[in-house]
Design a protein around this nucleic acid. Structure first.
Lengths: 357, 357
DNA sequence: TACCGCAGAGAAAGCCCTTTCCCGCAGGGA
DNA sequence: TCCCTGCGGGAAAGGGCTTTCTCTGCGGTA
């Protein structure tokens, strides 16, 4: 690879001058030399060594992001928000997938620190795992001690800046909706128990039910991977154990889609025979049939906020922003079917809101 | 940030020794010094500066990847394949989204070169744009001249290693299927014309039709963005211009999902009134209702192959691997409806293959 | 004419590591 | 006893860039 001194030699100038031309330094350079340097750059196809640059300038500019999996629509949306702000500010993003492996998460914190990122954003659920949480916080503290900024999206154990989706209220909304539709036998297709996202959403759901004097027994909950196949499988187990279920809450939309697949395979009509509620409102939710009733989280906005927090100067830290959840009624949740119904009205709830495009 | 000399000083050794301990060098170090160094590392929460390391070792290890958009399922699958191989070989991946902007693509080639990646993989369609193609090839050639390896996924203008999905045959399969079902009025929801992916798939489709003595007039093609909304919108335009259409081929699954949304909104039953064919077989294709009939491309495998090519030593370059397309029959393509039909049989084609796991 | 100031260019000192090269020392063979 | 060998450790030379500092030479002022 051509180096800066190659360019300088070819242009007949010193490396210092070449550097100044290439970086548009404020120090003036005569037009003649400038052109000679530029010509040399073009001829040699010179590209500065990014590592040497980052080493020489003390300036840190890139931002590190750790997510569970960018290709998961939930994180894809969040990342879109992160990107938007980062691009506006001319920041490079280094995105790492932890695939929900705590150890990998820890490793990535080190890796990103090693890469001298100016800030670190952790997106995704926290874990119910004391040892891990302590280790993570130690690492983050060490990073912050050297001037790094940290923000988390949706995990509550970290003491710094945070953007928090209101999972609990979201769960509550789901529960209230189903109660309002007369459902009593409600099953839950949940993500891994170790994730705080799972437990928070469950807690909200429980609260809604208990306000109606009902409860959510453990036997009506199945824990599985937070994805389509996990949802399909958990739904099958739920149905096997309790065929009387009139509604299923899936703790994210991917699982809900898996649930719909299982129900379709078993010939159960949604929402006539059984209702389904999702969570997150990922883009695909409106395109499945029937369109998914779900709890919306402002995913893109969560990313925007987090990046803004972390790049924002001045404002006293820590700041915690809670972003509200909102129920989106589409076509998968209807009144409890007549056979098991306690109240009047058997038609599935009319579709509202949402049109195509 | 603590540096290596901080660690060395604290441990009472030279930086050389500290480095050797930290990197597990082959040169032996006494246990006592080793422990002192390790202790210092822990106390100072030392993390090596990745840029300094990369500068000092001439070793290049990371691999650069340029895709249109990782969060697009098509690329997400490819990336999964890339990752798998990279992880096996202990390589770090730097992934960049070009968002189908040729200029950005060019910039990223430079950026990744600047970051000293050992290899570069360009995934995604090529462009019908001579100036761009020439510029890109120049940059890639300059990179290869300095020892960099390059592989492309699915663009045919580059002269080096390549993994090529058989888009043309895929288009052909789609056309033959629809002809076999008796369709004559076939509309196409296409991606941007400037992409070779679009034109290759169209060419295959045309070939299939012409073998049946039919043709595909331009008025039955609508070009739009290669995503859900593009598909929805193009379908609407197509239908407005030609309400007699009995089948729609969408040139990728995202567009097909958009097409289904528009059809649903207009109350057209799929496949009873109109058939829909997608392309790619992304994971969600089996979960929409009706499940999408589509042309499958081995996306993950494409990623695996590309990364293997680029990391593989010895084998003479260039190598071109063509990966076959395959028709997956699900529920959106049926016989042409009775009113416009030329041959017998009005029931939608029975669903085959695929179950919900 | 002598001196000052400044513009424009180069020399050189880092930035933080890795790795080669060299040195001192202890042990073994002659 | 002397020399050679080999081991463990340090000194120092990069790696490619940025940036401060220094130097030269010119124009302008007293």
């Amino acid at each position: 690879m051509a180096t800066l001194s190659d360019v300088a030699r070819r242009a007949g100038v010193s490396p210092a001058t070449a550097s100044r031309v290439i970086n548009g330094s404020s120090k003036p350079v005569t037009d003649e030399l400038r052109e000679r340097v530029l010509a040399a750059v073009a001829e040699l196809q010179y590209v500065p060594n990014a590592h040497a640059q980052l080493l020489a300038r003390s300036h840190r500019s890139a931002v590190g992001v750790i997510v569970h999996d960018v290709s998961d629509p939930y994180f894809a949306e969040i990342t879109r928000g992160l990107q938007r702000v980062a691009t506006d500010q001319g920041r490079l993003l280094m995105i790492c997938n932890s695939y929900r492996d705590p150890d990998r998460e820890l490793e990535y914190v080190e890796l990103l620190r090693g890469h001298q990122v100016a800030a670190l954003i952790l997106a995704g659920s926290g874990y119910h795992d004391e040892a891990f949480t302590r280790q993570l916080n130690e690492k983050l503290a060490a990073y912050e001690a050297t001037g790094g900024r940290v923000a988390v999206i949706g995990r509550h154990e970290h003491s710094g800046d945070a953007v928090m989706p209101d999972n609990r209220t979201g769960g509550y909304l789901a529960g209230r909706e189903l109660c309002g539709l007369g459902h009593r036998a409600i099953g839950v297709v949940a993500g891994p128990r170790i994730l705080t996202t799972t437990t928070d959403r469950l807690a909200g759901l429980r609260q809604a039910l208990s306000e109606q004097g009902r409860e959510l027994p453990e036997r009506r909950i199945r824990y599985a991977e937070f994805d389509r196949d996990g949802g399909a499988e958990a739904t099958a187990r739920l149905l096997d154990a309790d065929p009387e279920l009139t509604a299923i809450v899936a703790l994210n939309d991917s699982m809900a889609i898996g649930a719909l697949a299982t129900l379709r395979a078993r010939g159960l009509a949604v929402p006539q025979q059984i209702s389904v509620l999702g969570f997150d409102d990922m883009p695909i939710a409106r395109d499945v049939t029937p369109a998914l009733t779900t709890v919306r989280l402002p995913l893109v906005d969560m990313g925007v906020r987090a990046m803004s927090l972390v790049l924002g100067v001045g404002a006293p830290t820590p700041r915690v922003e809670v972003l509200p959840a909102e129920l989106v009624r589409r076509d998968t949740a209807g009144f409890v079917p007549p056979s098991t119904r306690a109240t009047a009205g058997s038609a599935p709830r009319a579709r509202r809101g949402d049109s195509t495009s």
